[in-house]
Nucleic acid binder design. Structure first.
Lengths: 354, 354
DNA sequence: CTGTTAGCGCCTTCAA
DNA sequence: TTGAAGGCGCTAACAG
């Protein structure tokens, strides 16, 4: 599987005659420039109050000494780590991925560094990471919580460290939270299918112990009820955020017996599994079955047929999360909850039932 | 777009009567336990040499004082930041994404934290981040280089900080590098199309100033030459790693005039643009045109037709990168270059020409 | 087994 | 405008 070029491993430790160029310290620079450490500090941090010539001399000395300000030391002194913890479940989901991209870019531009954690929605990993962030004295946190470490998250807030929860609410804790408009989105999607004439709709949704799972379920049921329909438990499938969930649910609903005329996969990760099943059985979409998904992904538009979706606005979510964190870091007080609207994007995968 | 629940922003700064629970220090614990600071340090870092009772007393005191070891202070003292810089161009590409996921998980388990940077393949952002990593005294680096900051990267190596370059080689610098077997992959892909009977193949590939772009081009040309064909410049399109590249190249080759019977998109990001164009013109794949892509993505398998690809082994690349970094951190000497084999994954998008 | 001492590199009064 | 001094929180000799 893995081959080393030339077949033989070439060892090349740094040649001994090259002095490992250690980064210089203020002290080194001070010695070189013939001034005191504090003068160097002032000159280099641009606090003014320095004569032009000494400043120039110090700059040269800094260059010569290969000076690099030690952020750890500075952080220790100033009690500001300039570190932000970012915790997501994975980097595949568009919301999670965009959150990471946007957060890093924007926070980086604001002078913060992002420490990343990919939890895999695992509570223990989350707990460990949160502890680590306490130890690094992170100045802020953006998290997609697993929901099972509320008290630990609350501790940050109590210590004055802003925490922004995204996509999922952390129950029992008054964290600033940015959420999808899940109820509205699921309701709009369901209503769209109803308006097309569907009366038997399969609904695949996330775990009932998550914010989005619960809320989308509520929205779906509300749309049905409004249309005078009674929700049929055999048509509603809760499940983990994984392709298998979609596959199994489709199997249960489509393999035999009376089939629904439409499937609404409101659990993004499950979409792929649902599509696999549908393809394996060669079910024509939208002729024999309408398919509606939740959360847009670039390839949905290129699929044949292009997938109609409820778009949850992940870019806006990410931007808002960073925006709010930056504001909180600036002393702006907490706002409890934000909702980002969903939008129906009609493409080709839904049609009136046969 | 954004609504606040209840319409009115609720302000909830932490109630003033809750003392901000500051993290305690060794000193606090020492005072509480009635021992010296160093005793506390030893007890809490598990260096042994502590009587059981004092240890227990210290643990209780630590609890009471809400003690959290300050990683910054520890790092300053021990000259070990336990920080690793991770630099990728984006998080969409499977290789980049997996690198980030795998690196965080594995390095996290090994007691390191990952500082993330998404450069967008921009040299200035890369330079800024590298400087930041110097300042944070990062202990290691995993980077997908832009290729335009070689000297700065080399400085780390000189200072004894292991750097693992991934996917792209950093010219002129002897960095440990993990690469796709690009030539072999492109050659195998091209040969596959040739074996199907294609004699006019369009080739879309990455920028010529990148490792993968150049190498895949070489592999493609070699396969053609071996088959006794002469490369036709109008059939070869270099371009940035973006969907537009694929769209434009297809436009140039498929819009009018004599069409190639197959397209090999060896620039992953361009695949989507190519597919869009093909769909817009309603060209049937593989009946009217064979389509071969490079780098697998989950949705390729679910597309209709499922896309045949040259899989570049991104998971293995990521694992190897982390593995090697960890070894280097452990003092194992540099190996210059590693190659991870490519594999042809045959699905439905290629067929013999009409 | 425990305490004392001496910094790691930096910032920040306070004097000069 | 500059320097001296103290300390952020922690670890690691070195004594006792």
């Amino acid at each position: 599987m893995v081959t080393k070029k030339g077949g033989v491993a070439r060892k090349t430790g740094a040649p001994a005659h090259i002095a490992a160029t250690r980064a210089g310290t203020l002290k080194d620079v001070a010695l070189l420039a013939g001034v005191s450490i504090s003068t160097v500090s002032r000159a280099l941090t641009g606090k003014g109050l320095i004569s032009e010539q000494t400043e120039k001399r110090i700059r040269q000395a800094a260059e010569a000494a290969n000076y690099r300000p030690n952020t750890l030391a500075r952080g220790l002194k100033t009690q500001r780590s300039r570190l932000i913890g970012l915790m997501v479940h994975n980097l595949v989901g568009t919301s999670h991925r965009l959150l990471a991209e946007v957060a890093q870019q924007r926070l980086g531009a604001a002078g913060f560094q992002v420490i990343l954690c990919v939890t895999g929605d695992d509570a223990e990993q989350e707990a460990r990471f949160l502890t680590t962030m306490e130890n690094y004295r992170a100045e802020g946190l953006i998290v997609i919580p697993t929901g099972r470490n509320g008290p630990q998250l609350a501790k940050f807030a109590q210590a004055g460290v802003p925490v922004i929860a995204v996509i999922r609410r952390q129950e029992e804790q008054a964290l600033e939270t940015i959420l999808h408009a899940n109820e509205e989105g699921a309701q709009a999607g369901t209503r769209y299918l109803l308006d097309l004439g569907h009366r038997d709709i399969g609904f695949i949704v996330g775990r009932a112990d998550t914010t989005s799972g619960r809320e989308r379920y509520v929205g779906h049921v509300r749309a049905l009820t409004e249309a005078g329909l009674r929700p049929d438990p055999s048509r509603i499938h809760f499940g983990a955020y994984r392709p298998e969930t979609g596959f199994r649910a489709c199997e249960a609903m489509l393999a035999n017996g009376r089939r629904p005329t439409a499937i609404f996969v409101a659990n993004h990760e499950a979409s792929m599994g649902a599509m696999r099943f549908i393809r394996e059985r060669a079910i024509d979409v939208p002729e024999d079955l309408s398919l509606l998904c939740y959360e847009d992904t670039p390839w949905f538009a290129w699929n044949k047929p292009a997938i109609t979706v409820v778009d949850s606005g992940p870019q806006r979510i990410a931007e808002l999360a960073v925006e709010r964190l930056l504001m909180r870091l600036d002393g702006v007080p907490t706002q409890l909850e934000h909702r980002v609207d969903a939008a129906l994007v009609i493409r080709e995968s839904c049609a009136a039932p046969a």
